[in-house]
Design a protein around this nucleic acid. Sequence first.
DNA 1: GCCAACGTTGGC
DNA 2: GCCAACGTTGGC
Length: 154
Amino acid sequence: MAKWLVKTEPDECSIDDFAHRPEKPITWDGVRNYQARNFLAAMAEGDEVFIYHSSCRHIGVAGVVRVVRAAYPDPAQFDPDSPYYDPKSTAEKPRWQAVDMQFQRKLKRLVALDELKNIAGLEGLPLVKRGNRLSVMPLSDEHWQTILQQQGPD
DNA sequence: GCCAACGTTGGC
DNA sequence: GCCAACGTTGGC
């Protein structure tokens, strides 16, 4: 199973939105960047995904969700009332993809960006590079384990 | 709220 | 195809 990380503003969708209704899948839509879309499209059912809270008071990795439906055309791109509407998309040639994800668990504590920047072994991760805007990214198993270990002992 | 970094757009 | 202008992201 591949590992991923997605950014979200917790005001929009936080780990608690998943945790509040753990049986209910949430559609990850509105990704409007080609590199991020390509990563979304590469997600497989069962893959695990870190939820990262950005542009907020407590920035960092907050929990884990699981892909329960692999990529399909993002419905928001066809909806004129959606902020994610894209008039250049057609049903025959959709430009954007969405996946559905479901709650797995919260981390024992939030692993802050500030910590991630100082952990040896995460140097290659786009997340910790200054000015990086990629909102969906793959993680190596090593990156994944390193971040989990940062939570500390029970 | 500021602003640096980045991706996209559109004129040429 | 270049690149300046513009809009957005996201940490601070």
